[in-house]
């Protein structure tokens, strides 16, 4: 099982420097692959529509996920509800490449996350800060992403979460070793994980940005803040020209410090998703699962 966890962390390493795109149909999956997505997230409704529709949001229909698996050669991810280990078992049964235990869906358990160490397929989980990230890793997550605020087209929360994680990492790095015991207690995480961060200056797994990324500049911003890659959800297929915007975001992530290139990439992309501001949101998905 230890080796399986290593292999699952390794797959996330292969995704680095890439863009993972939300898709709802095989056709969108092919557009995403053509545009240079390094993986796709198969889901019935993108977060903006989940937010608009309200109600309980669950794992997608396995038939729909299989249709997307058949359509592309890149890895396919899918979401299950927080704590819903049976939805995760079903996703494993259809050989999904990565499970996102996601706050975008309605939580199935308001106390416990899934014991991800019991699974052979890898999990990615959202986090707002270092404590959440290390708790998810302790439960077996092989990859972390910021929660951001999904389906808003507003990057402010992803920025807040990435800055929080990076500053807490720098703080652990700067500590004396005998201070780590107390730091681990305050973060509510095992001492060994706090020690790893202290010694290596990063999480023990790959860390992507997610939530509200809508433009090439948003994606490059997250990369410059320390993300190792980017999830783009509603931002692509809620925009005027999904294929062009997706391809531009992919290139912006590769050359995230080249402002001249990103300026060129940002020209004539058509309408960006309209988005909603933080103050206008009734449901804060990022507050689900801590």
């Amino acid at each position: 099982m230890e080796k399986r966890y290593e292999l699952n962390k390794n797959l996330a390493q292969m995704l680095k420097g890439g863009v993972i795109m939300d898709v709802t149909t095989p056709e969108q999956a092919r557009i995403a692959e053509e545009a240079g997505a390094c993986a796709v997230m198969a889901l019935e409704r993108i977060p903006a529509d989940i937010r608009a529709a309200g109600g309980v949001s669950r794992m997608s229909d396995p038939a729909m996920i299989k249709g997307i698996q058949a359509a592309v050669s890149i890895p396919v991810m899918a979401k299950c509800r927080i704590g819903h280990f049976v939805e995760a078992q079903l996703l494993e049964a259809i050989e999904i490449d990565y499970i996102d235990e996601s706050e975008v869906l309605s939580p199935a358990d308001d106390k416990y996350h899934i014991d991800k160490t019991k699974f052979s397929v890898p999990f990615v989980c959202g986090a707002k800060d270092l404590g959440e990230a290390l708790r998810r890793i302790n439960e077996g997550a092989a990859m972390i992403r910021t929660k951001g605020e999904p389906g808003t087209g507003d990057v402010v929360q992803a920025v807040r979460h990435m800055r929080m994680m990076q500053s807490e990492i720098r703080r652990l790095v700067s500590m004396r070793e005998d201070e780590l015991f107390d730091a681990a207690k305050l973060l509510q995480v095992p001492y060994e994980l706090a020690l790893y961060v202290h010694e290596n200056g990063k999480l023990p797994v790959v860390n992507f940005a997610a939530g509200g990324v809508a433009t090439p500049a948003d994606a490059a911003l997250m990369m410059q803040l320390g993300a190792e890659g980017v999830f783009v959800g509603s931002g692509i297929f809620k925009s005027g020209n999904p294929a062009k915007r997706a391809a531009a975001i992919v290139k912006a992530v590769t050359n995230y410090t080249d402002a001249k290139l990103i300026a060129e990439l940002s020209e004539n992309l058509g309408e960006a998703m309209v988005g909603i501001n933080e103050q206008e949101i009734e449901l804060l998905m990022a507050e689900r699962g801590k």
Partner: peptide, 15 residues
């Protein structure tokens, strides 16, 4: 390096 060959191949050409 390792990664997704479709992505790398596309970026090699377009860049």
């Amino acid at each position: 390096p390792g990664g997704e060959s479709t992505v790398q191949g596309k970026l090699l050409r377009e860049l």
